[in-house]
Computed example of a mutant assay.
Amino acid sequence: MKIFSSSFSNIEKGLDYAALKQKTIANNIANADTPNYKSKNVKFTEIFKETLTNELTAYRTDSRHYSFRMNEGHPAIAADRQLSYNQNGNSVDVDKEMAELAKNQIYFNALTDRMSGKFNSLTNIIKGGR
């Protein structure tokens, strides 16, 4: 019997992604005046979509066999080497980074609110609905 649904692990992965994106954005803002610094971005959706399109299927002859899947997509940090917004070779656009920061904060808050709701439901179940 599975006590916790897979939504807990999915929310946890989302929170990990949001934390990594937060660190990356903060690093970009901190290096906004560093010469030749190239802004970095967390690439998760591209890897996730690629994993879905390249999903392999296999025929299992026994239920005890492992399922045949490709590795799960994990976030990767990539630098954009072609852009340069400043004369010193820096590619950080502070306005864009601040907008991404606000968007990531909203995403993070939604995930924590959802996780809180899940735990409240479990608490309610444990208490017997009282």
Rank of each mutant, 00 (worst) to 15 (best):
73 G>K: 01
50 E>W: 01
33 D>E: 14
106 I>T: 07
18 A>P: 08
24 T>E: 01
52 L>V: 02
106 I>C: 01
49 K>G: 04
126 I>Y: 00
74 H>K: 15
116 S>W: 07
60 R>S: 12
56 L>Y: 01
29 I>N: 04
33 D>T: 13
101 L>P: 01
79 A>D: 04
73 G>V: 02
71 N>L: 08
53 T>S: 14
109 N>V: 00
12 E>F: 15
36 N>V: 01
29 I>L: 10
50 E>F: 02
109 N>W: 00
43 K>W: 03
90 N>I: 00
52 L>W: 02
62 D>H: 13
71 N>F: 05
82 Q>F: 06
48 F>V: 14
130 R>C: 01
67 S>T: 15
38 K>M: 01
80 D>P: 00
113 D>G: 14
98 M>Q: 11
3 I>V: 15
39 S>L: 03
129 G>L: 05
16 D>W: 09
108 F>G: 05
26 A>P: 01
52 L>E: 05
110 A>N: 13
19 A>S: 13
40 K>A: 08
101 L>F: 02
118 K>G: 05
88 N>C: 06
69 R>A: 15
114 R>G: 05
81 R>F: 10
59 Y>A: 06
54 N>L: 09
91 S>F: 03
98 M>I: 04
112 T>L: 08
86 N>T: 09
60 R>V: 11
62 D>F: 07
29 I>P: 04
111 L>N: 03
34 T>V: 04
121 S>N: 07
39 S>T: 00
38 K>H: 04
35 P>Y: 04
114 R>V: 04
51 T>Q: 03
57 T>H: 12
50 E>G: 14
49 K>V: 13
93 D>L: 12
99 A>F: 09
59 Y>M: 13
47 I>T: 10
41 N>R: 06
79 A>R: 04
31 N>K: 05
56 L>W: 00
20 L>R: 09
72 E>W: 04
96 K>Q: 11
93 D>Y: 11
58 A>P: 07
57 T>Q: 12
100 E>I: 00
109 N>I: 01
80 D>V: 00
85 Y>R: 10
112 T>V: 06
44 F>E: 13
69 R>Y: 13
117 G>T: 13
18 A>K: 08
1 M>G: 15
84 S>D: 02
123 T>R: 15
73 G>D: 11
63 S>T: 14
32 A>S: 14
1 M>F: 10
82 Q>W: 10
97 E>D: 11
36 N>W: 00
67 S>N: 13
92 V>P: 11
108 F>Q: 10
108 F>V: 05
23 K>Q: 14
115 M>W: 13
130 R>G: 06
